[in-house]
Amino acid sequence: MHGPVLPGWLLVALCAATGSYCLLRLRSGSPPARTAAGGEAVMGFGMAAMAVPAAFLSPPPWMLTGYAVIFGGTALRALWLARGGAHHLHHAVGSLAMVYMALAMTPGAGGGAHEGHAAGGVPLLTGALLLYFAGYVLSTGVRLLPTAGGGGPVAAVSWSARPELALACRLSMGIAMLAMLVTV
């Protein structure tokens, strides 16, 4: 990822922490919840890898192509799983956005952002993805707000199975996606 080094490392830390928590969520919950957690873990760690500042490590073109292939595969899997729930459609959009960013960073594909050239994204597609993820961040953030009259007793739940932490992870990955898309 091109841009300032400190925000890049903060983005790496945020995405890696989110991916790690999603791995912990794999141990609890129903099978559909574990499937979603697995997809979010892959996305978190993939975003962390792609967010490493170019000043520290300029990935070779084959690595960017590898990201595109991996996230293309996760997009296909998410589309297949979307038959059972709408959240998998979001995973597909996120995975396709990662494919788009990997291809935009690839030298010779109009990008070459890691070689000191301008970013190579398609402005209309970048804008559409920015709008989508801005809406996702806002809707997820609203779901984290406390509801009126919700002061009743709370059942003891393992910290790896807390729904508000899962929402917070989704919110942080949505914000990270916005930050990465802004640099395209």
Rank of each mutant, 00 (worst) to 15 (best):
F133G: 02
V122D: 15
P59H: 03
G112V: 00
G174P: 02
F133W: 12
S139W: 10
S172A: 15
V93I: 12
G121I: 01
A48T: 06
A51M: 05
A128H: 03
E115W: 10
G112L: 05
P31E: 00
A118S: 14
G120W: 07
A41C: 11
A49P: 00
A148F: 12
W80T: 05
V182D: 03
P59A: 00
A128Y: 09
A166Y: 10
L6I: 15
S158H: 15
S172Y: 08
T183D: 03
W9M: 14
R77I: 15
A75N: 01
G150Y: 11
L138W: 05
A176P: 10
L130P: 03
P123Q: 12
P146A: 09
W80A: 13
G44F: 08
T35M: 06
G46V: 07
A148M: 14
S30N: 01
Y136D: 04
G152Q: 14
G66F: 01
G135D: 02
G39K: 01
H91L: 11
V184Q: 07
A82W: 13
G141R: 01
G151I: 12
A109Q: 07
G127V: 05
L23G: 09
A51H: 03
P163E: 11
V157C: 14
T147N: 08
G150R: 10
H117A: 10
P146I: 07
W62C: 04
G46K: 06
V154F: 08
L10S: 12
V52F: 05
V157A: 15
L57M: 06
R170G: 14
G141L: 04
L138H: 01
V184A: 05
R143E: 15
L14W: 09
M105N: 07
V137K: 02
G38F: 10
E40I: 04
M177W: 06
V93H: 09
L64E: 03
H87V: 14
T65E: 12
E115F: 07
T106F: 01
A168Y: 09
T74E: 06
A55E: 13
H117V: 05
G72A: 06
A75V: 07
L89R: 11
V52T: 03
A49E: 06
H90D: 09
G127F: 15
C15D: 13
G94M: 14
H117W: 11
I70Q: 04
S139F: 05
